[in-house]
Design a binder for these strands. Structure first.
Lengths: 110, 110
DNA sequence: GCAGGATATCTTGTGGACCGATATATTGGG
DNA sequence: CCCAATATATCGGTCCACAAGATATCCTGC
């Protein structure tokens, strides 16, 4: 799973959101590190809907502007859970390696 | 950073390895989840060398077969450390969301 | 009243990256 | 002797992220 997809799913865990709302939520979630581009958002969103991880929710019109909401499906919830564990495992594996490497022995330039 | 790049760097943390050795080490590291394709390996490896995260090491000839070794640079070590922390943070953020969502309230089909 | 910025959706084109397939070469086993 | 495994490298297709642009409405300032 790509990082944009991962964050979009995460942003939809607690409640349905619309496009622009997702962009803002992802920025918050990632402490400003990930700023979803608008073109990325809709492309990824369409793909997630096609894969059944996300569903169209209600459409709202607020102040004349359309808001198209999306919600997480059960399958999307499962995928996100799996992917999260996967990434945590990857990070653990790398951390172990990086910590085991300490002996100041065959370093690149010491 | 892409997942293949992440695992290649991780496989090079403890000691220089050659192409096939990296493939095997990545499989071990990831508990068999990630099986690097040979086309992916050399493409990513070249890019990492170009970016200065990995360097060519010695060439060995063992039993008539060439073994071209690669090693992690200091910059590569730093990049991997950063990326690892980044992924751990992503996983933490998602885990928090997934755990906070429990109230059995507005679920998809309950 | 209108220009410009913010909100909001969606489309299109480009470049990059992964991966399957292919090519080449050597060693060892049946 | 041929095939599998080891080992390198290249090429083409396909998918994906992103920038840029199109469309439309509301709000603010002039």
């Amino acid at each position: 799973m790509t990082e944009p997809a991962f964050f979009i799913l995460t942003a939809l865990v607690d409640e349905p959101r619309h496009g622009y709302g997702i962009v803002g939520e992802v920025a918050t979630l990632s402490d400003g590190r990930v700023r979803l581009k608008i073109g990325t958002l809709y492309g990824v969103l369409d793909r997630l809907v096609g894969d059944g991880l996300v569903e169209r929710d209600r459409d709202e019109v607020q102040q004349g502007r359309l808001r198209r909401y999306y919600r997480l499906t059960e399958s999307g919830h499962r995928s996100l859970t799996d992917e999260t564990e996967r990434q945590a495992a990857n990070a653990r594996a790398a951390t172990e390696r990086l910590q085991a490497w300490r002996p100041a022995s065959q370093g690149w330039a010491s």
